[in-house]
Design a protein around this nucleic acid. Structure first.
Lengths: 137, 137
DNA sequence: CATAATCGGAACGAATCAATCCGATTAAGG
DNA sequence: CCTTAATCGGATTGATTCGTTCCGATTATG
């Protein structure tokens, strides 16, 4: 019940990118320096986020990345799914995996779908824009 | 964003125990045989669930375990916290851990509390009684 | 056309997790 | 009161996944 470090870094990185939204392109190394994330890790995250369509990446010298969507249109669920894949609490609901050993006799299995939807809804309700806001403390 | 196998097994095991609620005591080996969970794993889970106060264990010959509370009063969040510890999406909010490297400059940190509450609320809304119901499919 | 800087994917090492085994404790039965 | 039986509890081993790092392919610039 804890998201991986990669996802945590991805959220921090996206938040930093959101603050740089004005600047057309920011390279991954710059974001890494600001956030403290190791540079290779930031590059790997940039690849994942780019493939997921959350950011647009420009190659070549002077290139960099920028948000593909407004920060308000990017939810925490999007980032989690981009890094960790589909949100699935259990291996039962994964497609093609049948190593549970119970399968049909498991009375709990049919209920996981509702749980997944509830958790996903909770994460969808949090937008990147709200995460980028400064703390009110 | 996936709960561990131990938690998955714990939910299945608690569901099986709920169905045996009529029988005063059921030993862990019996539940393991019904659910297909390895016996040593079931024993370890029984220890965790007992320490968390979700089940009552009776030692000695003829002993076993039984639910400490009605199934409707046990939520999925209780089981998750019993096995995996407090629900915390990130290591930031863990008490005593300060290995993030960002700490104060992290603008995202203050918002994780709300996310944790949202997810925890989603899990609290699912009771063991509803999980024990047969599938309506 | 040559150069430089970037993204993309693949390989290595470390840490956590899951499963297993053995000892201590406890209640019942003779 | 003693023996027996069955259970919890913690410690060890192995495997899987995660995190990090490095190298090659691509692309805009000078």
């Amino acid at each position: 019940m804890r998201l991986s470090s990669m996802t945590d870094y991805a959220v921090v990185m996206m938040s930093a990118a959101a603050r740089h939204c004005g600047a057309a392109r920011v390279n991954a190394a710059e974001l890494a320096a600001e956030t403290g994330i190791p540079v290779p890790t930031a590059q790997k995250l940039a690849s994942l986020l780019s493939k997921a369509g959350l950011i647009r990446s420009s190659r070549g010298s002077g290139g960099g990345i920028q948000l593909a969507r407004p920060a308000a249109a990017i939810s925490l669920a999007d980032i989690v799914e981009a890094v960790e894949g589909p949100i699935a609490m259990t291996a039962c609901v994964e497609n093609g995996r049948h190593d549970c050993g119970l399968e049909d006799s498991c009375a709990v299995k049919p209920h996981w779908g509702a749980v997944n939807s509830a958790v996903r809804g909770a994460l969808t309700g949090v937008t990147l824009a709200s995460l980028s806001q400064e703390a009110q403390a």
